[in-house]
Computed example of a mutant assay.
Amino acid sequence: MNTPSWSRRLGASFAVAAAAMSLSGAAHADILIGQTAGFTGQVAASVKELTLGAKLYIDKVNATGGVNGQKIDLVSMDDGFEPKRAAANAQTLIDKGAVAMFLTRGTPHTQAVIPLLEKAQVPLVAPSTGAMLLHKPVNPYVFNVRSTYQREAERAVQLLLEMGNTRIALVQVNDTFGADGVTGAMNGFNGRNVKPLVHLTYDREKPDIPGVVKKLIAADPQVVLLVASQQITSDTINALRAAGSRILGATLSNNASNGFVQLLGQNAAGVIVSQVFPSERSNNIPMVRELGDLVKAKPAESGGQVTPAMMEGFASAKVLVEALKRAGKDTTRAGVLKALNGMSKYDLGGMELGYSPTDHTGTNYADIAIIDPRGRFLR
């Protein structure tokens, strides 16, 4: 039987409409956000805590209707903390249609992703690295949330000196992250007309921890500032303790996680860790209180305890969601970029942040904490 012409025309109209919706993104389609980070490898523990903090907020937003009627779909891929895999993952996520990349981890890894951002004109929100190269010169596609490594390393050295530690050793991994942290640390030394007692370097791929430990014990500093991943840092401190050394360990905020504390085990107490967000126990700060409530509501997922890494992920997700809200119905890459550059003033909840086309710095907060016998970060 022949199909009536009106039916054929109607069917064709539906097909055209469906195709148009597919190409433009249906009104209620998910908003795809891409993440590549080391869910396995040297930084796995802190990456999982970072992402958990972000997901707690994103899940809350999705549970209350999403953003402009759309749910946020955070797709996370494991790069094993390898820059080449980070770039490959980012390309896959961009090809899938991610409107933004989010919460990458590591300086060389983020560097590997940047050319892909520029080619596809995709914004990256909240790279979990304080690399100065992501701040100056301003990259039009990178929007930082946390403070720089240089700022926190400088502040850490200043505070260590103020505590009466005149013999400070400096140990770094030999990559862009290590060099960045050391630049800040040296600013702290130079500001007080002091030099590090000894300055040592790890090979990033094959760190000679026994060799570094031997040299540290021979130099006999009061404290060693370690600019390295959580695995290398914890292995060094544990090796010092196994050798009978009581040299005080200090490190940067990339190691501010429960995972780092667990790697240290019985050697965690007394280790100093710099911080780039307010204390997770400062419940007078709205942002801290908000995250605390989410953690209490999902104890099975969160472990029931807020950590500094979770705080960074949570704050980063708040910035991402605010940009998506300000983009309105235009949740394209260009729309999100425009919204971010127009976010001149945003209150995270007791901590303010702002961007412009000439400033993608984010916050400038820096402090230090000491791990107590219970594994908590005390200010």
Rank of each mutant, 00 (worst) to 15 (best):
V271N: 03
G249C: 11
S253Q: 10
A250V: 04
N258G: 00
I247H: 00
L252K: 08
S282A: 15
A256E: 01
P278F: 07
M287S: 04
L291C: 09
L294R: 06
R241T: 13
I272N: 02
I285K: 11
Q266P: 03
G270I: 09
G249T: 13
I285A: 05
I285G: 03
A269L: 10
I272K: 08
V271W: 02
V276R: 02
A242T: 12
S253H: 13
I247L: 03
G270M: 12
G292N: 13
L252A: 03
A268I: 02
M287K: 06
Q275E: 05
A269Q: 15
S274T: 13
Q266R: 09
I285Y: 12
N284C: 05
A256M: 08
L252V: 05
N267W: 04
E290N: 15
R241C: 00
G244K: 08
E280N: 06
P286K: 11
N258F: 00
L248C: 04
G259D: 00
K296V: 10
A250D: 04
I272L: 10
V295K: 05
L294M: 08
T251Y: 14
N267T: 08
N284F: 13
Q262H: 09
N284T: 15
T251R: 08
F277R: 09
N284P: 11
V273K: 02
V273H: 03
A243H: 07
S274F: 05
R246I: 04
L294E: 11
V295T: 11
V261E: 01
V261P: 00
A250K: 05
R281V: 14
F260P: 00
E290A: 15
P278T: 12
F277E: 09
F260A: 02
A242I: 13
V261M: 05
N284M: 03
R289T: 11
L248P: 01
S282E: 09
L263I: 10
G244C: 14
G292K: 10
R289E: 15
G270P: 05
K298Y: 12
N283P: 13
V271M: 02
L291H: 14
V271T: 06
A242N: 13
A297C: 12
P299N: 14
V271H: 01
V273F: 01
